[in-house]
Computed example of a mutant assay.
Amino acid sequence: MRRLAVILLALGLAGPARADVDAALDRHILPAFAGFAGAAERLADAAVADCRPRAVAPAYQAAFDAWMAVADLHIGPSETGGLSIAFWPDARGFTGRVLSQLIADEDPVAFDPLGYAEMSIAARGVLALEMMVFDPAYSHYDKGSYACALVRAIALDLSRQAVALEVAWRDGFAATLRSAGGAGNATYLTGDEALRALYTQLLSGLEFTADQRLGRPMGSFEQPRPARAEAWRSGRSLRNVLLSVDAAQALAHTLSGGALPQTDAAAARVHAMAGRVGDPGLQGVSEPQGRLHVELLQQAVRAMRAAIEAEIGVPLGIAPGFNSQDGD
């Protein structure tokens, strides 16, 4: 960390680094959180008006789209606040078990908006709502049923979470990032620490997409795991990959403040490779040809990460191969 600070000061980059953090907040992060809060509110309104699957599904897809713009940020309020918005991976199937128990018991918590906020994270957020709306084991319910009330509760809870997260970033953590190196800021002692924190999120998001969003459904060649794909029930696993890459590209541009030809070319290749996958839920990984296409997509995502290391990390004195998971 000290070596990075010395390099930035020597190159006269300490001022621009802070400006880049401002740009990342003002042009990408804060508008994206506001967009998610608005989309989640519209989803809640749709569920209140008619909580049946066909009425909720369009607003659900729009809210999940909006979430993906900030889904891979795991600092500040999002470090814990994002867990109950998108509980995934769910390796042990907790979401299905908790929802089934709620429905079997007709637990009155579905009629208690404040009480639902205390529910297990497995029964909250976009993935719990996906199971209720898109999984045939849960989605055959009528208006006025307990399951319908549960959908409404999850949607209202998601909207409250989205608003709380947006406010926490806008009125709290954004100032912490902006004031890095200032008196009283114990989180980021220098301006480059804030920049490095966002750069770390950028790399770790792409790493998560390659290893989890694509790696989990691929499993092994002998034992593919298509049902482990993120949001496969709603047919948006591939879309989430692309939206996560688009968000990374946008964040990279705001952090750099300049042209990123390698990164842009790599992002275009990700989209090109995704066009060959065909199955929006990544269920084709069980077939050799389908698996090959997903492997090529995974390689393209990793190549984009390498491009960002070269175009943003190297000028900052952060060597390629930097571990984005260690946080320092």
Rank of each mutant, 00 (worst) to 15 (best):
M1I: 01
R3S: 05
A5E: 12
A5I: 07
I7H: 12
L8E: 10
G15R: 15
R18D: 11
A19M: 14
I29C: 13
L30E: 06
A32I: 10
F33C: 03
A37D: 11
A40P: 12
R42V: 04
L43P: 03
D45W: 00
A47I: 04
R54G: 06
A55G: 11
A59T: 04
Y60V: 04
Y60S: 04
A63H: 06
M68A: 02
A69N: 11
V70D: 01
A71P: 01
H74S: 10
I75P: 00
S78I: 01
L83C: 02
F87W: 09
R92A: 15
G93E: 10
T95I: 02
Q101R: 15
Q101F: 08
E106L: 05
P108Q: 11
P108A: 13
V109L: 11
V109E: 03
V109G: 05
A110P: 06
P113Q: 12
L114G: 13
A117N: 12
E118M: 11
A122L: 00
A122K: 01
A128D: 03
E130I: 01
P136R: 12
H140W: 10
G144Q: 04
G144C: 01
C148G: 13
C148Q: 11
L150W: 06
A153C: 04
A153M: 01
A153P: 05
A155C: 11
L158M: 14
V163L: 13
V163P: 00
A164I: 03
L165M: 13
F173Q: 05
T176M: 00
G181Y: 07
G182H: 12
G184I: 02
A186Q: 08
D192E: 13
E193T: 03
E193V: 02
A194S: 02
Y199D: 05
Q201T: 00
L202P: 09
G205I: 10
G205S: 08
D211P: 00
R216T: 07
M218V: 14
M218A: 06
S220T: 15
Q223L: 07
Q223R: 12
R228E: 15
A229Y: 13
A231H: 10
N240A: 07
N240S: 10
V241W: 09
L242M: 06
L251Q: 08
L251C: 06
A252W: 02
L255P: 08
G258S: 14
L260P: 09
D264P: 01
D264M: 02
A266M: 09
V270Q: 09
A274G: 12
R276G: 05
R276V: 10
V285T: 08
E287R: 05
R291P: 05
H293A: 02
V294T: 11
Q299T: 07
V301T: 00
R302S: 09
R302K: 14
A303E: 15
A307H: 02
A307M: 04
A307C: 08
E309N: 07
A310R: 12
E311Q: 03
I312V: 14
G313D: 03
P315T: 07
G317R: 09
F322Y: 15
S324F: 11
Q325F: 10
